[in-house]
Design a protein around this nucleic acid. Sequence first.
DNA 1: TTATTTTCTGTGTACGAGCACAAACAAAAA
DNA 2: TTTTTGTTTGTGCTCGTACACAGAAAATAA
Lengths: 360, 360
Amino acid sequence: MKKVTIKDIASIAGVSRGTVDRVINGRGNVTEEVEQKILKIASDLGYEKNLMASALASNRVYRIAIVTPDPNSDIFWAQPREGIQNALELVKHYGIITDYYDYNLFKKDEFCMQMENAINSRPDAILTAPTFTAESLEYLEMAEQNNIPFITINTEIHHPDILCYVGQNSFNSGYLAGRLFYLRLKPGDEIIALNLGHTLANAQHYSDKLAGLNAFFEQHNMSGNPIIWYEFDKFLDDDLLYEFWVDIKAKHPRMKGLFFTNSRGYRLVKFFNPEESQKYDVVGFDMIDPNIRFLKEDKIDFIINQNPILQGYTGIMNFVNHFVLKKDVKKIQYLPLDIVIKENVDFYIDNFKGYPVTKG
Amino acid sequence: MKKVTIKDIASIAGVSRGTVDRVINGRGNVTEEVEQKILKIASDLGYEKNLMASALASNRVYRIAIVTPDPNSDIFWAQPREGIQNALELVKHYGIITDYYDYNLFKKDEFCMQMENAINSRPDAILTAPTFTAESLEYLEMAEQNNIPFITINTEIHHPDILCYVGQNSFNSGYLAGRLFYLRLKPGDEIIALNLGHTLANAQHYSDKLAGLNAFFEQHNMSGNPIIWYEFDKFLDDDLLYEFWVDIKAKHPRMKGLFFTNSRGYRLVKFFNPEESQKYDVVGFDMIDPNIRFLKEDKIDFIINQNPILQGYTGIMNFVNHFVLKKDVKKIQYLPLDIVIKENVDFYIDNFKGYPVTKG
DNA sequence: TTATTTTCTGTGTACGAGCACAAACAAAAA
DNA sequence: TTTTTGTTTGTGCTCGTACACAGAAAATAA
């Protein structure tokens, strides 16, 4: 049961290690006849390259440039980063080095600058959350020219040349939200879909989610339950937001469900009084701290989680699978849409991140 | 930014590689003074052992004995195995070898036999699902004597000497089920909790789940919604099971919720007519194929999933973290209780297993 | 003191694959 | 034929660590 080495193959084939090495790694300069013989022996013996020895000998370094929003500009982005760092812990021995190019989520020019810096550093790959779609596509082309593949997470852009996408399926998350409202809806109840954010950034995301929600209601003949779409981009100003909320309530006495299209539901539900906490079914996204708090206080009823930590983790692991282990990687990987409620939230937070972790 | 090696430390400390090696690996025979100097330099330089080189040089082989139920005796157990095999794919380069000791889930003597075989093979660790609690504890002690640690998955046994447990928290899964029923319950509605299985095996599991369910109802003042507990061990006989079901319906006209304590809900819900599929809220466990089918047919409403694939995966990864990477491993790792419904089930099945996978 | 044991330190080789370079051989050109 | 060129194969060193063994130094016994 001993492992087969290049030496074993060489001695059986009656050639030297060097020749076997050339065949295995396709370096050429080997007669057809010998090559075939060696390949046959290798496959008969079930030869598998010892990756440790290989990495050690080649002494190769892989560099990944990470272009994601600065967590300080939007706390959500701490989570993908956490996953990235955890993955690195497991695979850094393969010689993987990362450089971070942070940008302010709300500043397009910062994004562009950092993306250029990243490309100019000539990394082996760029891992990015392409929050600015149009610009991302441009840089993708530019990187393409320099043979730098893109690994994208969280925000889907459609382009044949990305190495992979790991993240959410927005349409389906809206559709899922539809079911969650449906569970408790009565005839005539209204749903308010609320986008606390700027239309420009991530527009596709939001409209896909809404489309999914609408699709569910249509397919379940819920024409008696209207969905009303609002957008409010001054969400950072509590006074204005409160005014907006009072206004909404006045306009929609039959409001029963509240659908937040992103992670910022916490900004509004903090205005709920106890009675309102009871009355409304609230569905929001992402397990960031304030959302978790309000989930536990019954102000938010369901959080749909797309495991951003796992997105980062998987992004790195895909790199390893592709570059180090030379395995095919699935191009589109939609993560599960976890339904998080008060009763299972702690397990998602404390004990597990979707992959094994150590104590320290 | 170059990596620090033993040689670097040696030349700075003015000693040979061998001496540094003795210090780093605590092999002794080094003067206190030199040892301290080397340790200081190592920590100053941020030395980290190159695991590739280490594994290569030591040529060590780790053997794990896997003692789990034969998937042929109960299909559920194919899932942990899948996770085990996927994890091995990622870490086998560290020299990890596995031997499987399968046993029939329902045959205690087979379990004992295989456990003895496993211990006698003197592995570095035993990964097991201790479905037979009392016996498992005995073998745990026996393995303990031989310095073979236990990694347990899926079924929790309480013993200070296990290396780790990865799996479900039964009480909480019952408690979670409580919430799922609560969403749609009306005053007077009854819940039938049904254990399709033998009392003996996994008894703790089942009673914990029921306790959780009861606890939720108590804490939410639902004394108007009784929970009635049934057990039926002839579940393999369709005729008897059908008879039992007809009987239940007759006895409980106010039945609204149906709680299956394990993965075998599919055996009963197949008797539902369309009207019944609508009428009952059904909560069951485990994403095995027949359950998934009935989820899609609206006969089952919620599946609580404890990611058995991930259990296997994590079990192996914990081994690696402990033995190869020498990191501390969390002793108890409760996996998230995923709430799976028709609208998110496909993402759990097709696209993701909770960790990165390759295409082939 | 010298002999002997014990404690400490240095050196050489191995692990398996990568890679540069040398050597052997064959084919084409002189 | 010899020379040149090109193709194919073999050798030796490298990566960073582990470990056996040799050797030096110190401590103890004679």
